[in-house]
Nucleic acid binder design. Structure first.
Lengths: 336, 336
DNA sequence: TAGCCGAAATGAAACGATTCATTCAGGCAT
DNA sequence: ATGCCTGAATGAATCGTTTCATTTCGGCTA
């Protein structure tokens, strides 16, 4: 029960606590014989470093926080994996926080991470977190925005050009002859949604004969997509769109499930469908899903990389903004 | 830069550090006026508790570790979500560790969690972790096995009866008239895989005319499934199985992708296919996937619940073993 | 007015690892 | 034999919070 401390190890090995610490952290500074003796004592007593004490002294922890909008979205688990890969290389652990579109949870996680004095924070922000992030930075905790840029550009970011992605998607739908496009996505408070819509608008604007309507959803989930799909189904056939651009693949899969439910509609003939993110399951959907691919793992990896660089240079850092380009992936749902 | 401590707050509010701590933790013990003064100082200085110091004093941290086999598997993100839900109710955070079928990573995460003095550990074990878990328990850190029971039953666990699930799946395939069943899964060092196969064997044993072969994979991923599917495709038509039971849905989706690639095979007519886990994407697959459903979110929730109970009673605890029953979900891939 | 009580506030000790200025011992040159 | 140098080891101070035995003080009773 009573925890074994460096003191116990020192006593057992017949050395001072300072030496034990040196064996732990700078073994080359200690004579080989002593190292062996101390290590034997450590193994003997089953000593395990208390990270809290170490952190207290060091002033910061050895983990970094990642706050995402939705862990159930494979896009974010891919980002998380990339982040974990880079973090592990540096001996850091990743704390994963899930906001689930809740401002309260986002704030709670940021507070938690601040109390933990994490090494850095990666966040795909939902609300306005400028104040909290500024405070974190003042404390010396670097922050990188994931999948989004802030307006003031004072924080580093790794993002994908969502406007370009929206443009790609809508342009593709137009190019296969669709004229009544519906954009399914929401809530519109989420930046990614707004940008993708904006891109679609730009692409459609070039073609006067093509219309674009917006069907807003309250989340970016399969369930919300199904609800949107049902809404479309309820309409008179002539009133339905002939193409749907969903703000992400989860929504698209939901829409697809709803459209297929009655069996009277054919995708892509009656309604073409394109999603966003190109998650692994998109290719395996009922009707393999066209999508806009983002380099998700790379995004996570790069974000941590930026974070580490920022932590290294300290005060003198210049925010960096890395923007990846999205890519169109055509499959059956738009008639590949 | 210099971090604000309780000392600074105390000085600013004209009280002692003890009082500041009381305001933070037991405001009812402090007179209203003082509480207000201290809180004003806290807000003023932007003081944020240092969790490391708090933990050091408390002896344990306020987070708990969850080690899963694969975060990219929606089954585990569901478990994680359930765990997070219960943990949040208790003001605890969840540290998510991903082993990715690597023994080294599993060990590394356990070490990390031990150094962090986490409140408890949930683990879906890969290798033999008995020693490490025993040590953790000796230190007073409760452990709950997720989705698996140990042989010695000395650790609490929350699991689903995988043998029953395997039986369900195989029995279903037999009942729709299939006679040459292939089990796709691996590595066979993973308990869940072994159990599901065992269940299938039991079900098949009752029908002398039905054969069961095993196609071992090196992972439980979409990619591994695709490889297995290609293996089947390469065979002469008469030599192929007429039904495939995949050890999880990711594998099943991979198999499905491979089988559909050439377009010469029809699922379920030529080959029926059933997966395991019933992840959200199973219903949306090219051919909607039959599967064995597990109460994933509930598993995570219950596991944390068990953990908390164990932490409360301390030394006198009795390991509990909760076993949920799986459920057959029939869809088109087995001819619904 | 002395004595007592309880609520409120105090502040030193403790948690455990790390750091760094200091001490120690042995070897080498003078 | 003396002084100097270097590599090795020491141990007190430190990080920031919490705890708890002790002190303070205003009010109340006898």
């Amino acid at each position: 029960m009573a925890s074994i401390s460096v003191n116990d190890v020192a006593a057992a090995a017949g050395v001072s606590v300072g030496t034990v610490s040196n064996v732990l952290n700078r073994p080359e500074k200690v004579s080989p014989g002593t190292v062996a003796r101390v290590q034997a004592a450590i193994a003997d007593l089953g000593f395990v470093r208390n990270d809290a004490a170490r952190q207290l002294r060091a002033g910061r922890s050895r983990s970094l926080g990642l706050i995402v909008l939705d862990v159930a979205n494979p896009f974010f688990t891919d980002v998380a994996r990339g982040a974990e890969d880079r973090a592990t290389e540096e001996g850091l652990a990743v704390l994963l926080g899930n906001t689930d579109d809740s401002l309260a949870r986002e704030a709670a996680y940021l507070d938690l991470f601040e109390e933990q004095r994490v090494h850095g924070v990666l966040i795909s922000p939902l609300g306005d977190v400028g104040d909290r992030l500024t405070r974190l930075r003042a404390r010396g905790t670097p922050t990188v925005l994931v999948d989004r840029q802030t307006e003031d550009r004072s924080f580093s970011s790794v993002a994908v050009d969502d406007v370009a992605g929206g443009r790609l998607a809508a342009h593709h739908l137009v190019s296969i002859g669709k004229t009544r496009i519906a954009f399914v996505g929401g809530p519109i408070s989420i930046r990614q949604v707004v940008d993708r819509l904006e891109g679609a608008r730009e692409a459609v604007a070039k073609h006067p004969s093509v219309s674009l309507e917006v069907i807003e959803t309250d989340a970016l989930s399969v369930l919300a997509g199904r609800a949107a799909g049902e809404l479309v189904l309820e309409r008179a056939p002539g009133d339905r769109p002939d193409a749907i651009f969903a703000a992400n693949d989860l929504l698209a899969i939901g829409v697809l499930q709803a459209l297929n439910m009655r069996g009277e509609l054919h995708v892509p003939r009656d309604i073409a469908l394109i999603g966003y993110d190109d998650i692994a399951f998109a290719a395996a959907a009922v009707v393999p899903l066209s999508s806009i691919r983002q380099p998700s793992v790379l995004i996570g990896y790069t974000a941590v990389d930026l974070l580490l660089r920022e932590a290294e240079v300290g005060d003198t850092f210049e925010p960096e903004h890395i923007v990846f380009q999205p890519e169109l992936v055509v499959r059956e749902s738009t008639g590949a």
